[in-house]
Simulated assay, not measured.
Amino acid sequence: MYDVREWRHVFKLDPNKPIDDELLERVCESGTDAIVVGGSDGVTLDNVLDLMVRVRRFPLPCVLEVSSLEIVTPGFDLYLIPTVLNTNRAEWITGLHVEAMKEYGDLMDPGELIVEGYCIANPDCKAAKLTGVSEKPDTEDVIAYARLAGHLWKLPVFYLEYSGTYGDVEAVQQAADVLKGTETVFFYGGGIQTAQQAKEIGQYADVVVVGNAVYEKPEEALKTVAAVQK
């Protein structure tokens, strides 16, 4: 069984974005700790299955981040289940999760399910529009959500998501300080385009998630692995 507490770097690949076989091979053989399959727009069971099959050719964890019930399928090593801490829509806190338990509960291996406490820090991104996040959390908000995830709810993962924008490093640092001594793993995602940015965030976050750069600046994206792992 794979353990997210041992990870430092992951690539998040969007099933709705094309990636050729050569680049996919370089991404999967880059030394990253896992490939997370997930996205907020145009994600279907067909394109999830297609990407899973292609990633499965390589010996690293292949993980599904569940954004809708329609894309849940066997074959992944782990399933990341987001619960959005700063949404104003209850379905993104527990509603969809209850529906999933009704439909798939008997089939799920509890050891493969990891709940992510999401704090979406960019209200203009697609994920925010999808999940009902309308306001940008300030540093005090981020700290409070980190405490909620790590101290009160004791979630496996706290995910600070800036989605397309590079985050507030001070907020990242303070969230990391709050989570020290807890069992909650601190994921950071959003706006990482260079190895230097990955290194900076990697000083504080346990796991650095690189997504859009794979498609926009692939050579720089590949350099982020060594920048974090070292």
Rank of each mutant, 00 (worst) to 15 (best):
Y162G: 02
M108L: 14
Y104F: 14
G191T: 07
Y188W: 12
H9F: 01
W7R: 02
N88C: 15
Y145C: 00
D14N: 15
I201Q: 07
G167T: 04
G191S: 06
I93R: 11
E219R: 10
H97L: 12
G39C: 01
M101K: 15
V53F: 07
G31P: 09
V36C: 02
I114A: 06
V48G: 05
L85Y: 12
S163I: 00
G117T: 10
T194H: 08
P59M: 10
Y162K: 02
V55C: 03
R57D: 01
H9Y: 00
G211F: 00
V98Y: 06
H9M: 00
N86S: 14
R8M: 08
D46V: 05
Y166C: 00
W7S: 03
E220Q: 12
S67T: 06
Y215A: 08
I93Q: 11
L152K: 05
T224G: 10
F58K: 08
V115Q: 14
D168I: 14
V133Q: 09
N88P: 11
L152R: 02
T182Q: 13
D141I: 06
A221I: 06
D141L: 06
Q203D: 05
I201K: 08
Y188A: 10
R5W: 04
L130T: 07
K12Q: 10
L49V: 04
G95R: 14
L160Y: 10
V225T: 04
Y215R: 10
T131E: 03
H9D: 06
A175K: 05
G31V: 12
V178E: 05
V27R: 02
E91H: 07
D206I: 03
A226D: 00
K129D: 07
I81L: 14
Q193E: 14
H97R: 11
A34G: 05
E200L: 11
I201V: 12
T224W: 02
E200M: 13
D124L: 14
A213D: 04
L60N: 01
L155R: 00
P59R: 12
A34F: 03
D33M: 03
Y145G: 00
M108E: 13
P61T: 02
N86Q: 15
V48M: 12
V214M: 09
N88D: 15
L85Q: 11
I35A: 03
A226P: 02
Y145N: 04
P59A: 11
G31S: 12
Q173L: 03
Y79S: 07
I71Y: 10
F58R: 07
Q174S: 03
Y104N: 15
L152H: 01
G191R: 03
S134H: 14
H151L: 14
F187V: 00
A128R: 06
G211H: 03
L130S: 10
E220T: 12
V142P: 03
A149F: 07
D41I: 11
Q173C: 01
I81T: 09
K180V: 12
Q229C: 15
M1S: 05
